[in-house]
Design a protein around this nucleic acid. Sequence first.
RNA 1: GUGGGUGUAGCUCAGUGGUAGAGCCCCGGAUUGUGGCUCCGGUGGUCGUGGGUUCGAUCCCCAUCAUCCACCCCA
Length: 422
Amino acid sequence: MNDLLPDASPRWQFLEARVRDLMARYGFAEIRTPIVEQTALFARSIGEVTDIVEKEMYTFDDRNGDSLTLRPEGTASCVRAAMQHGLLHNQTQRLWYQGPMFRHERPQKGRYRQFHQVGVETYGLDGPDIDAEVILLSARLWQELGLAEHVTLELNSLGSAEARAAYRDTLTAYFEQHGEVLDDDSRRRLTTNPLRILDSKNPEMAEVIAGAPQLIDHLDEASREHFERLKALLEAAGIGYVVNPRLVRGLDYYSRTVFEWTTDALGSQGTICAGGRYDGLVEQLGGKPTPAVGFAMGIERLVLLLETLDLVPAEALGGCDAYLVPMDDASTPEALALAESLRTALPGLNLTLHCGGGSFKSRMKKADKSGAPLAILLGEDERADQAVTLKFLRDDREQQRVAQSGLADTLASLTEHPRHNT
RNA sequence: GUGGGUGUAGCUCAGUGGUAGAGCCCCGGAUUGUGGCUCCGGUGGUCGUGGGUUCGAUCCCCAUCAUCCACCCCA
């Protein structure tokens, strides 16, 4: 588990603000679900034999003896909540969520045991238009963050659940015929997820993999058409993509469209966003058959990417506009009152009041450290005149004495914050 | 779950089987009410944790935890 320290939070807030704005612009509504759910929910949705369910969940018994689990992903909870509250009853939904997820894996760069995802979920829409819509939403986010040239869209179709199951059997049979060439990992995958064998980087298996039957040739007709229409929609929208026939998602519930946005700027954790269609999931969890498509993106990876590429704009890093310094302890009460009146008059002003005493020299050092361009000094002389001294910390400019009554107007013009008219 | 690297001051890191170091940061002073540059002084460490070897361990050994990197897998 890792802490998010003050230096990092402006980057997170920047990303989160962009995401929130984008979701609203695409007509998605936020849903917030608990971070704990009944363990069975995840086992039934993600798949019993996946790594997540087999060995990565934080599971515990509560005081009633129920088995609960810290959510390892967001889709299962959304489906559960939507079903439970009737959101899927004869209607469609476009939802998004954001929050912490938990997986007990070995941490490394871009991977943490508590990590954060933003996800979108749509229900009740079965055409490729909504597939394209969620992909375009993600593409716009990269565009607006300045990441567009650094990410690649990979696309594939897994076909219907039936077609996928049939293909899986075909593939298993093929690899079993070449069992002598398979490495240990791949032999294990024969029973867990044979599609993953196609992903192996082992050069000794390259030939066998190249000769394996292709998923794309085993799609059912409806899925093939869906996929073709999606590709046409993306092309019409000017979104570049690469069809990756080896792209399979790790969670069992996916069918038809799957996609991943990847980058090569983050080392081995290159996937920043992944998703697809899971038309069978609602029914699998006890609801009526409901088409669904969505994705999740990893916030830590995105923040890391923005940081690596230096794409967080300076203004997003916030900071202090002015630092108010009572020059001695006797000036503190008046400084406190002055700070409050400025905050009332200028709601957009970021004003830090010096607290904690110290020598005047140390107070000025704190003013400097605050990053503020302006120090407001209030001492005995100023109090006698009902004034303050404005000192410019970043410009080569004479300090000036300003009456307290006119200070808000002066600050408004200096910092370009509109005055609050009351 | 597998393999490897690293854990010493708030941070970045030196270091030695015999009472623990630097730079930066922080505090004070040079400068009675003016930050940044300079100089002087100072605070701050059960050397990740628990065992073991030893007269003596921060150093050697074992375990454990954390962290980083890679694998697996995933966002």
